[in-house]
């Protein structure tokens, strides 16, 4: 068994330990002075630094068709960013142990059964308590962050907004969205029921969607606006958004709805309120919102 690596496993030959308990900093220093401990800590830090840019990298493909076009999408990207940051420490520690184990704790090779040389560690109170506390703390943070963000995007959609921004208010637009195999239609009840197959939205106005379906379940996904809700047959689901950017965006169906599901997409045109009103008038919607 000459190829077995026993580094760091010989018992330290030292006098009987004194009974008084050293301060915690001293204990951490002692632990860190073990040959493997420092290695794993350093490796964790290296992997952590390497993984940290992931928080920004994940946002690049999300913004590939342009920066967020609504507050909701800003919140979503914030959440993804923060969650990535929060998970970096745990992931880098676990990966550090994997890598360190493969490099430094590599033992026996071949078919013969190795001798028992690993330490019989059945448990470690400090490690277990620390892990539980950290993972519970992180879970708690995720829950709190998620609840706050959810409350925020809910109020962005339809909630605590000023009276004129509420459904039916002066400053709001209602769109009745209907999905059917495999097209979307949009009806503007405040504009004499003008019906279009491209979603026209005014910038900086609260828009409310009443979403339903004529046949099967579709999913109404305004990609850059961060809006998503199922269009169910026999039910009306509601959501809302306030577009904050003028431009042309994507609407895709995100629920398998049959043969041509892949083609069930259309454009979202966000424009200034003046252009929106005149466009509605052109299409026959006499009244203005």
């Amino acid at each position: 068994m000459t190829d077995v690596n026993t580094k760091g496993l010989e018992p330290p030959d030292e006098p009987e330990a004194p009974t008084n308990r050293p301060p915690s900093m001293e204990r951490i220093r002692t632990w860190l002075s073990r040959p493997y401990a420092r290695g794993i800590v350093i490796l964790s830090l290296i992997i952590g630094v390497l993984l940290l840019p992931m928080a920004w990298i994940v946002l690049i493909p999300m913004n590939v068709t342009g920066a967020p076009a609504s507050e909701i999408m800003v919140n979503i990207e914030q959440t993804v960013f923060v969650f990535t940051l929060v998970s970096v420490p745990i992931v880098s520690f676990v990966y550090a142990v994997l890598v360190y184990s493969l490099i430094k704790w590599r033992g026996h090779k071949g078919d013969s059964i190795p001798e028992d040389k690993s330490p019989a560690i059945r448990t470690n109170t400090i490690g277990v308590v620390l892990w539980t506390a950290v993972s519970a703390g992180l879970a708690f943070f995720l829950v709190v962050w998620g609840l706050i963000e959810l409350a925020q995007i809910t109020s962005n959609s339809y909630g605590t907004v000023t009276a004129d921004q509420q459904p039916g208010g002066e400053q709001s637009i209602i769109v009745n969205v209907t999905g059917q195999q495999w097209v979307w239609t949009f009806e503007y009840p405040q504009h004499d029921g003008v019906t279009t197959d491209v979603l026209y939205l005014p910038k900086d106005r609260a828009v409310y969607f009443n979403v339903t379906s004529k046949d099967v379940i579709h999913n109404f996904w305004l990609v850059e606006l961060g809006v998503k809700i199922d269009a169910n047959p026999g039910a009306i689901t509601q959501t809302g958004v306030t577009p904050t950017k003028v431009g042309s965006f994507n609407l895709r169906c995100a629920e398998l709805c049959g043969m041509h599901h892949a083609y069930m997409e259309t454009e979202v045109e966000v424009m200034e309120i003046e252009s929106f009103t005149s466009l509605m008038r052109e299409m026959g919607g006499g009244k203005t919102a």
């Binding site: 496993l9 010989e10 018992p11 330290p12 030292e14 330990a17 004194p18 009974t19 008084n20 308990r21 050293p22 204990r27 002692t30 632990w31 073990r34 028992d116 040389k117 690993s118 330490p119 019989a120 560690i121």
Partner: peptide, 13 residues
């Protein structure tokens, strides 16, 4: 496995 060489030793040493 074998007894942990660090057990009961290193923390107070």
């Amino acid at each position: 496995g074998v007894p942990d060489p660090y057990e009961n030793v290193s923390l107070n040493s």
